[in-house]
């Protein structure tokens, strides 16, 4: 036991507790968002992370689902209450993102936690992590934007009758969260094919294919699915409004590259000589700050107030 404790400490460089707090927070968030509904907790329909509505008894709904629903239903009914509800949840979502930014991804997303569990197993087994090159990252960024566009433009097309009704919640139907998160409450029905018609069969097959690929990817690459997640793009688009930001002090950086090595998203831009290093794939997990050996080189600011900084002892 003592050996394990020592190992954890020296490998993580964690003299302070930020990562332990994050790990605890992720688990708490997982419990609330997966099981919260069973205890009367429901955080509404604007949760800025994968709070999957397909999990019976979940504690909140993912805004991506809400967004598709509002666009679809809002346009279909054009009723004042429906539009006000859509607008209301959008405001709530923007406020939540404005306050906590990408921390939703790094600190609260249940699907992110599953990825972190798989990474922990991989590390335990000593299996090498695959690095996503900057060139590949560019392609993945395009794919992420394509998924966001698919998510936003499919509902109006369904409303307009261009696409069949089965395309309703188009992204949810191919999201691996739909297949994997319900498993934690014993719900396995989304792991099978839906043979109702050609569209449902195609979508359910796509879901299984993406889920399988994602599981493999998540094992070999830390936070693999985050590289594809439209949430990351959506939250990044609201970056000018966000209060929580990763800020670099270029004059304090010695260029050792520890930050980029530690980053689960392989963000090389962290090494650059500029203050704004909040890359579009950053999940604000603060691993870079923990790895950085320079005092105050990397900082997390909240409403302009410095709340955590890198140090020799670990953020």
């Amino acid at each position: 036991m003592a050996m394990t404790m020592t190992r954890t400490r020296y490998l993580s460089g964690a003299e302070s507790k930020l990562q332990e707090i994050r790990w605890g927070f992720q688990h708490l968030s997982f419990l609330v968002l997966i099981y919260g509904g069973r205890f009367g907790i429901h955080l509404g329909s604007a949760v800025p992370c994968f709070a999957c509505p397909f999990v019976p008894g979940c504690g909140g709904y993912c805004y991506l689902m809400g967004l598709q629903g509002y666009i679809g239903f809002g346009m279909r009914t054009l009723s004042t209450p429906a539009l006000w509800a859509a607008f209301g949840w959008m405001v709530v979502f923007v406020i939540l993102v404005a306050v906590f930014g990408k921390a939703w991804c790094g600190w609260a997303c249940p699907f992110g936690l599953i990825q972190d569990w798989l990474s922990a197993i991989r590390k335990k087994l000593g299996v090498r992590e695959r690095i996503v090159s900057p060139a590949a990252q560019k392609h993945l960024t395009r794919l992420r934007y394509a998924l966001l566009l698919y998510l936003v433009f499919t509902p109006p097309l369904v409303t307009a009758g261009v696409l069949p009704e089965d395309f309703y919640l188009a992204f949810c139907n191919i999201c691996p969260g739909k297949a994997l998160l319900p498993l934690f409450v014993g719900e396995t029905k989304y792991l099978g094919l839906n043979p109702d018609n050609a569209v449902t069969l195609g979508l359910s097959f796509t879901l299984l294919f993406i889920t399988g690929g994602t599981l493999v990817g998540m094992f070999f690459k830390e936070r693999f699915f985050c590289l594809l997640c439209p949430f990351l793009t959506l939250i990044h688009l609201l970056k000018p409004l966000t209060a929580l930001g990763l800020v670099k002090t270029p004059n304090a950086c010695t260029g050792c590259g520890s930050c980029a090595h530690a980053c689960p998203m392989d963000i090389e831009a962290l090494e650059e000589d500029r203050a704004d290093v909040q890359h579009d794939t950053c999940i604000q997990c603060c691993q870079c700050m923990k790895a950085c050996p320079s005092h105050d080189a990397l900082n997390l600011d909240f409403f302009g107030v410095r709340i955590v900084s890198s140090s020799k002892g670990g953020a």
Binding site: L11, S12, G13, K123, K124, G126, V127, R128, E129, E222, T254, G255, C256, G257, S258, H261, A262, C263, P264, Q287, K290, A291, P293, S294, K312, G313, G314
Partner: peptide, 28 residues
């Protein structure tokens, strides 16, 4: 000791990669 060695990937490749960075990029 230019700073701590932060190992994000505990495979031999991952550890060597981190050490390589620390002893090259981290060298002043």
């Amino acid at each position: 000791f230019p700073g701590k060695t932060f190992i994000a990937d505990t495979s031999v490749f991952g550890m060597l990669s981190t050490l390589a960075g620390r002893y090259h990029q981290g060298c002043l």
